[in-house]
Structure formats: C-alpha cells, structure tokens
Amino acid sequence: MNNQPTPNLNELEKFHSEDIEKITLLLAKISNRSPSEIKPHLHTMLERLVQPAQELPFYETATPNEWVVAFQDWVESHRNLNLPTLSDAAISRESIYGERD
C-alpha cells in the first residue's frame, strides 16, 4: 500500500463527482435501476473503500508465544491488587461441600 493519506469521502465525491456520476449511470443501465436507487449503494461502497483498514483483533493474529506472554501479563496485572487472601478454612473441602451424611 502507498503511504499517502486516504482522502475522506467528501473530498472524494467533490473531486471525482463527474466520474461518480458516470459510474452511477452505468450501474443504473446494467442493473435496470434508477440512479436514485444506485446512489445509496455506491455511497456505502465508497465509504467502506476510503476507511482506513481496520486492524485485526489480537485473537485472530496472535502466535502461541504471544498468547503466553499476554496471559502472563494479565496474571501479573492482578498480583498487585492487594486483595485479602482466603484462609485455609475458607477453602477447605468441608467449607466448600459442607458435611455430608
């Protein structure tokens, strides 16, 4: 891809209005639809084309090693919360399941 800034939609429509009109008429001709029906679709398509490419989410691109590092960072981020720890009695089998008869 080039390093030129992507024009916004208003600039694109302003500087290429004649071309956009020709495309609208051509699409109307080949689709047997009116230009007023074509314009919203063309506008939506142009909107998508001028938007900067969105970065894929981490879970779609991360390698196994990146997952490990991210998980370790997440674990470490919870170590310094200064939360009270549970007592042995609180996590004992009896306190969890109670007495069984």
Rank of each mutant, 00 (worst) to 15 (best):
Y59S: 04
P7N: 01
M1W: 14
D73S: 13
A62M: 04
N32C: 06
W67Q: 01
F15D: 05
D73F: 08
P52V: 13
R93D: 02
N65G: 06
L12Q: 02
L49R: 15
V69N: 07
I23N: 03
E21K: 15
V50I: 14
W74Y: 08
Q4D: 09
L46E: 00
E55C: 09
T6N: 09
L9N: 08
E18K: 14
K29S: 11
A53D: 09
R100L: 06
V69A: 08
P64V: 15
A53K: 15
W74S: 02
Y97D: 02
P64C: 07
P84C: 01
T63S: 14
V69T: 14
N32Q: 14
Y97T: 11
E66Y: 04
S95N: 14
S87G: 05
H78L: 07
T24A: 08
E94S: 10
T61N: 10
P52Y: 05
L27M: 13
A53P: 11
E99N: 08
N8G: 04
A89L: 09
R100I: 08
E60A: 12
E76A: 11
N80A: 11
A70W: 13
L83Q: 01
T6E: 12
P52R: 11
T44V: 10
K14A: 12
P84I: 03
M1A: 11
H16K: 10
S87T: 12
P57I: 09
Q72C: 05
L83D: 01
M1P: 10
L81V: 09
N32T: 13
H41L: 15
E21Q: 15
I38A: 02
Y59E: 06
V75R: 05
W74K: 03
Q72W: 03
L12Y: 01
P64A: 13
I91W: 03
A70T: 11
S87N: 01
L42P: 00
A70Q: 13
E47L: 15
F15K: 15
T85G: 00
K39C: 05
F15R: 12
K39N: 12
H16P: 00
F71N: 01
F71W: 10
H78W: 06
F58V: 07
F71C: 05
